[in-house]
């Protein structure tokens, strides 16, 4: 079987297998490193055949595609091991989005983090905490409040409860511990066609309340920045979360 399957590498690279045969060969590829390498090499050849046919696309096609993109939702990234990056030595975890069935679970997380009482809190700190609790309660109470979270394989992640009508989101990090040195974790709003906008700095695991979110907000990102935060992200996000499942981006 292996030898027979191996001889299908060229027809496969040319897309010259029938549906069922293609599926069988793809299954074979998963366990045959040599075949996978050969297919990769042959595919670079077929790409040359492809590129040589380049023709300007009709202008009307551009309009149709770009306007469709504005109203088309994207699929979340598939679960997959870390992707090696050519430019940098570190890896960015690909996250699996796990929409919560209800707001309650995320709300519990937010509240637990909020009421993690620290010793020697001053009156000011307590006041701040109370104000924050009130703001959070308002987001949770919104009729359109929805929750989502993303977690990586090590259980580190971010939970969000958001309300489009109030333009607010409560964002909680968990499992990351303190950032190294005097560095801070900064929350960013990512919007199509615009620079990331800072939504504030995280203070440990205390929830951060992001306000002024337009309904076009597409995703949130968290980066590690020098103390005091940055005007724009200077590192790769440690975590990113699409806001589509909580009603934004449309």
């Amino acid at each position: 079987m292996s030898r027979f399957a191996h001889s299908l590498a060229a027809p496969y690279a040319l897309d010259a297998l029938e549906g069922a045969e293609r599926v069988r060969f793809e299954r074979h590829l998963e366990g045959c490193a040599r075949c996978a390498a050969e297919v990769r090499a042959l595919s670079e050849d077929t790409v040359r055949l492809a590129r040589s046919t380049a023709t300007p696309a009709p202008p009307a096609l551009r309009e149709r595609v770009l306007s469709a993109v504005r109203t088309t939702a994207q699929e979340p990234a598939p679960a997959r091991g870390p992707v090696p990056r050519r430019s940098a030595g570190h890896v960015r975890p690909r996250l699996l989005l796990v929409p919560f069935a209800t707001v309650t679970a995320a709300a519990a997380l937010v509240v637990a983090a909020l009421f993690a009482v620290r010793a020697h809190q001053t009156q000011d700190e307590l006041d701040t905490a109370r104000d924050r609790a009130r703001e959070i309660a308002h987001v949770l109470a919104a009729a359109d409040a929805r929750a989502t979270r993303a977690a990586d394989a090590r259980g580190r992640g971010v939970a969000v409860v958001a309300s489009v009508s109030r333009g607010r989101a409560v964002v909680t990090l968990s499992g990351y511990g303190e950032p190294p040195g005097d560095r801070v974790r900064q929350l960013w709003l990512m919007r199509p066609g615009a620079e990331p906008r800072s939504l504030g700095l995280f203070d440990g695991d205390t929830p951060l309340i992001a306000s002024g979110l337009s309904r076009f907000a597409t995703s949130l990102a968290v980066t590690v920045e020098p103390g005091g935060g940055s005007d724009r992200p200077t590192t790769e996000p440690v975590v990113q979360l699409a806001l589509e499942s909580v009603g934004f981006g449309e």
Binding site: V65, A68, V69, T72, Q74, E75, P76, A77, P78, V83
Partner: peptide, 14 residues
Amino acid sequence: LLELWRSAARFDPR
């Protein structure tokens, strides 16, 4: 081209 938008996350640089 629209599928590129939808499934960009499926691209595996490896």
